[in-house]
Design a binder for these strands. Structure first.
Length: 413
RNA sequence: GCGUCGGUGGUAGAGUGGUCAAUUACAACAGACUGUAAAUCUGUCGCCCUUCGGGCUACGUUGGUUCAAAUCCAACCCGGCGCACCA
């Protein structure tokens, strides 16, 4: 049992918020509330598999929940799933998930702490790597763990069931995943585990195994899932993610481009705005005379402010308004320097080489639809000259490709 | 192991000797309209070349038949299903 700790803050209002804001479900809400009010220092577990190099807003939701726990003085135990990432979780996949190699995992891990530090005070976080214990399990240990689950329990899990019924393969390895994650809870003696709602099955496995090892069963708090900006599941492969280390202007733009229906959800899950403000926003959206865009700008500013700072957020807002509402060219745009070697090449080749356009065929198509423009600044006035010749040689200038990309080409000798 | 069906572009899924760089849908991209929203309309959607023209690479892999193959044949690899084995 955890010991009474004088650093624990008991603030009923904050506790209530912790138990409700962005929460999908709590296995035993009353118990958790009691624990939080008791003044004991709880061990809050969260597992994060380094399956991609960047943390996006969706993944940040449970991390933000941890932040609330941390602010109340509880201990955050972050399990870096360097072992489990190799097993591959099936929670978010309808197909078999590829296994990551050690090298890929290390690569992904590189910058993780810096990213997490944007949300949590990492000096107070207990970081552990599950490879430390999972790789040491013997066959006998694993058999013991497997004894706690039946095949039909495993198959009752929705995505396994669907795959089974559709004749897709499910490897035994994937059955093992929840056991591994559950065993983590045993090792770190978690009092509470936080996760996305899609993790429910895995989180419950922790309770079963803790019970098996004679420990107190952890409580479980699942967070609501955040959709990507287009309303589909947030996933890097779909490309609808906002990463927490995105550049301010990019981040701002992504928020602006998202579906209106998601505004409230993003406000709830990605920001700290007060409940009242959420209600106001809801009312605001109900009135057809209001433009949801205004709310979105506010949201974008808040989110950029969280991951960068208010000043930068303000700048991003200005940039957005100048560039997209007033149609001006942004100040700091990508600059490509052309040396002697590349001089004389075609402009389109330069775009392709620098990966602004994926192929020359594509570039020509863009020219055909008048999607590449040259921006001329004369006497303070900006003119857009549409580029129509596909064979132009490189020269200095500012170009706009599509509606979002700006490039400045500089020749230097 | 035996039998059987199948493996096509980002996905789903047509095509079963030439008219196939491959119908269609979704996704994606661009243009118009907008609020860088949604919806709608239009166009594009393998790579490359100076062309409404041409070249190259692609339909699991490797060979073969043919003037010609995603399409036929063979072997191999992978998957589904049924049966057998495990009992």
């Amino acid at each position: 049992m955890a010991i009474k700790d004088t650093n624990i803050i008991i603030d009923e209002e904050k506790i209530e918020k912790l138990l409700t804001r962005g929460v999908e479900d709590i296995i035993n809400k009353e118990e958790l509330k009691k624990d939080l009010l008791s003044g004991t220092n709880l061990r809050i577990k969260f597992g994060i598999d380094p399956t991609g190099p960047k943390i996006h807003l969706g993944r940040a939701v449970p991390l933000r929940k941890l932040r609330e726990f941390q602010k109340l003085g509880h201990t955050i135990v972050l399990i870096i799933g360097d072992f489990t990432a190799q097993i591959g979780d099936a929670s978010d996949k309808s197909d078999k998930r590829p296994i990551l190699t050690k090298v890929e995992i290390d690569e992904n891990l590189k910058d993780y702490k810096n990213q997490i530090a944007k949300i949590l005070d990492i000096n107070k976080v207990e970081f552990v790597y599950n490879n430390d214990w999972l790789s040491k399990l013997t066959m006998q240990d694993i058999l013991g763990l497997s004894e706690c689950f039946t095949v039909s329990q495993m198959l009752s899990r929705r995505n396994f069931k669907e795959r089974f019924e559709n004749g897709k393969e499910i490897s035994l390895r994937e059955f093992l995943y929840p056991l591994m994650q559950g065993y983590d809870s045993v090792v770190v003696k978690a009092d509470v585990e936080v996760g996305g709602f899609d993790q429910l099955f895995n989180l419950k496995a922790g309770r079963v195994l803790q019970d098996f090892y004679g420990l107190k069963k952890q409580n479980i708090i699942t967070c609501k899932m955040l959709e990507g900006t287009n309303g589909e599941k947030m996933s890097t492969s779909i490309g609808n993610v906002i990463n927490i280390i995105d550049e301010p202007n990019d981040m701002f733009g992504k928020v602006m481009a998202m579906k209106d229906e998601l505004i409230l959800k993003y406000m709830e899950l990605c920001t700290d705005v007060e409940e009242e403000e959420l209600k106001e926003a809801e009312e605001f959206l109900k009135d057809k005379n209001n433009n949801p865009r205004d709310l979105k700008i506010k949201l974008a500013k808040t989110i950029v402010g969280i991951y960068h700072n208010d000043k930068i957020a303000k700048a991003a807002e200005n940039n957005f308004i100048e560039t997209f509402q007033k149609g001006k060219t942004p100040d700091n745009i990508l600059e490509i320097k052309i040396d002697e070697k590349n001089e004389g090449k075609e402009l389109l080749d330069i775009f392709v080489i620098n990966k602004l356009i994926k192929s020359k065929s594509e570039a020509k198509r863009l020219i055909e639809t008048n999607s590449i423009k040259e921006i001329k600044e004369e006497e303070g006035v900006e003119n857009e000259n549409i580029l129509t010749d596909t064979k132009v040689k490189v020269y200095s200038g500012i170009f706009k490709i599509g509606k979002k990309k700006f490039v400045k080409i500089v020749l230097y000798k």
